[in-house]
Amino acid sequence: MLDHGPGDVRFFDRVAPLYDRLMPAARAAPLADALAVSRRPVRTVLDVAGGTGRAARTLSGLVGGADPDDEVARGRVVVLDRSREMLRVARSRDHECVAADAGHLPVPDDAVDAVTVVDALHHVRDQRALVREARRAVAPGGVVVVADFDPTTVRGRALVAAERHVGFDSVFSTPDDLARFLEREGLEGRVVEPGFGYVVVGRVPA
């Protein structure tokens, strides 16, 4: 059995060239609904644990103004990840990337309109540190968006078993538990989409 801990990047370094063939594209509709909870225009997004830019490709079409030629209104999505091989793939697709740890976001306070974590929170070693850093980085009225998997569903139980089989020690939450967790960290949490692949948003108080 492989010896991966939560947040361990070795597995993702190995699978980076094939990752996008194995994973479907990030779903635009629930992410758009979550970003719409923001009380400020969403033009700058930090996609934490964003890997190959799989979610960033979707997010790029959801942020910014209506005119792509307007330099002020144009959206900006930055992919942050610890796996340099995943980021190598993202850069080859022209995504702006930063190699960094999810618990220490290399941005000033109130620097972005949204932080997203798509299908990756369960791999993060210190989820509280990530959420606290995201709250610090997001400007008042902006949002922290988390898409993840409900371990209490049929497919969720299968996913938990599969990740344990390959050596991960992933930590999953139900959507309601995650919304309450965001509330305890000072965000206005709500479930945007329930189900196996759910989306929860926490808005930073204005």
Rank of each mutant, 00 (worst) to 15 (best):
P140C: 13
S173C: 11
V199T: 00
G7Q: 11
R91L: 10
P205Q: 10
E96N: 06
R157F: 02
R39I: 05
P151F: 03
H95M: 08
Q127H: 00
A102T: 05
V112D: 07
R84G: 15
R164A: 14
V138S: 06
R93S: 10
A114R: 05
V9I: 07
V63D: 09
Y198C: 01
R74A: 14
D110P: 02
A102C: 12
G5W: 11
G53N: 08
D67G: 13
V89P: 04
Q127D: 01
Y19H: 13
V143S: 05
G202C: 08
D94F: 14
E183R: 10
M1G: 13
V131Q: 04
V37D: 10
G65M: 12
V98L: 15
E71M: 10
D20F: 00
V72P: 15
D33C: 04
G51S: 05
V160W: 07
D101N: 13
R74I: 08
E193I: 01
R125A: 15
T58F: 12
L187K: 11
A129C: 10
V191N: 05
R21I: 00
A36R: 12
F172Y: 15
R190K: 08
A66C: 12
A111G: 14
P151N: 09
A114S: 12
D148I: 01
R155S: 10
T153W: 08
H104W: 09
E193L: 15
L22E: 00
V37S: 11
G141H: 06
L59M: 07
V72A: 15
G189H: 03
P151Y: 07
E163R: 03
G141I: 09
R125D: 07
V42Q: 07
E163A: 09
V145R: 06
A36W: 04
F181H: 01
A120W: 10
A26E: 00
Q127E: 00
P41T: 07
G75E: 11
T44A: 15
R180A: 03
R93P: 02
R76N: 14
D119T: 13
G75Q: 14
R84H: 12
E85W: 04
D150I: 09
V192N: 02
R74F: 09
G195K: 12
G186Y: 09
V143I: 03
E85M: 06
R57C: 02
P68V: 10
G61S: 14
R93Y: 10
S83T: 06
E188V: 13
A179Q: 00
R184H: 14
F149S: 06
P151R: 13
F168K: 03
D169V: 06
P68A: 10
V117L: 04
E193F: 03
F149R: 08
D109V: 07
D70E: 11
A120Y: 08
R136N: 14
G61Y: 14
H123W: 01
Y19Q: 02
V117H: 00
G50D: 04
G142Y: 12
V98R: 14
D13K: 04
V171C: 11
G64M: 11
A179R: 02
V48N: 11
G141A: 15
G5S: 04
A158N: 03
A55V: 08
G65D: 12
G197W: 03
G7I: 10
R132V: 13
R14E: 14
D70M: 15
F12H: 04
S60P: 13
V201A: 06
V200S: 05
L182Y: 04
G186M: 06
P17D: 01
L187G: 02
